[in-house]
Simulated scan of single mutants.
Amino acid sequence: MVTRPTAVAGSFYPGQRGRLTRELDTLFEQADRPPAQVSPARVKAIVVPHAGYVYSGTTAATGYELLRGRPINRVVVLGPTHRVGIRGMALAGADAFDTPLGSVPVDPDLTAIAEAVPLVVTRPDVHAREHSLEVQLPFIRTVLPQASVLPVAVGDALPDEVAALLDAVWGESDTAIVISSDLSHYHSYDDARKLDAGTIDKVLALDDTVAPNRACGCFSLNGLLLASGEHHLTPTLLSARNSGDTAGDKGRVVGYASFAFQADQ
């Protein structure tokens, strides 16, 4: 059995089980309440940030709360590559991902389906130090402790190429999709709020032309936006802030938002 070890435990989030559990409890307590039009039972996908928990954890928890305790057995997680650039999408070649809360199994059936999708390759090196997927796993382990996952690192890929993967692994109500993305990077607080407001408008309009300088996970995000139109999902903004609102300097911030994508009926 091949297990992908943690790479950023102890830096992006607590590396000890007890401390991590307490941190997650606090983040969920502080999470924003969803708008009235969001019905958790109809939420198929969420978009959540992937910075250190002290910066973006509350925004992420707001999205994950909608998955808590639901009959979801499998979670597809797509996030950007920060360290190893690739064309296409990469699987980890692992049977499980380690976390301080215990290992999270990689779903073998979804893996087999994904392997047959064009531009999907198996590249353990792409996953080895990547944080955008790892930071999501303690949240998933907390709200869906029995779920298996399909972590996919997405490099340079067109919306229709990512949407083809999502279509292949879409599944039924027992399968959820998580897109890991932050928004703009390293602008002043006021400039970031304006830039991020424009990106949020694009997401809510299912406009799949979000640029890399507006969302670091734009390739995964644009794929979801295209697929959501085809699958009749409606996006709703759950929470938006930036690192200047949490633990960062207002002179140079990173933007965060969480969204829910739910079926019409």
Rank of each mutant, 00 (worst) to 15 (best):
M1I: 09
V2W: 11
T6D: 07
A7F: 12
A7R: 07
V8Y: 09
G10N: 11
F12L: 08
Y13P: 01
P14W: 07
G15C: 04
R17M: 03
G18C: 05
L20P: 02
L20N: 09
T21G: 09
R22G: 05
R22A: 15
R22H: 10
D25L: 07
T26E: 15
F28W: 06
E29M: 13
D32T: 12
Q37E: 15
R42D: 11
V43D: 03
I46K: 06
V47Y: 00
P49D: 02
P49K: 01
Y53M: 08
S56D: 04
G57Y: 05
Y64N: 02
L67T: 04
V76Q: 08
V77L: 12
L78C: 12
T81M: 07
T81K: 01
G85K: 11
R87M: 10
M89S: 02
M89K: 05
A92V: 09
G93I: 11
A94I: 01
A94V: 05
A96H: 09
F97A: 03
D98Y: 01
V106E: 01
L110D: 08
E115D: 14
A116H: 14
L119E: 14
D125V: 12
D125M: 10
H127V: 07
H127I: 07
A128W: 10
H131T: 05
Q136A: 01
P138A: 10
R141A: 14
V143Y: 06
L150M: 04
P159N: 13
V162C: 11
A164N: 13
L165C: 06
L165N: 02
A168F: 09
V169G: 02
D174F: 04
D174Q: 11
T175G: 06
T175C: 09
V178L: 08
D182E: 11
D182N: 12
L183T: 03
S184Q: 05
H185F: 10
H185V: 07
Y186H: 15
A192P: 06
L195Q: 10
L204H: 00
A205E: 10
V210C: 03
N222I: 01
L225F: 05
L225I: 03
H231M: 07
L233A: 02
P235A: 08
L237Y: 05
A240K: 01
G248Y: 01
K250W: 02
V253Q: 05
F259V: 03
F259K: 08
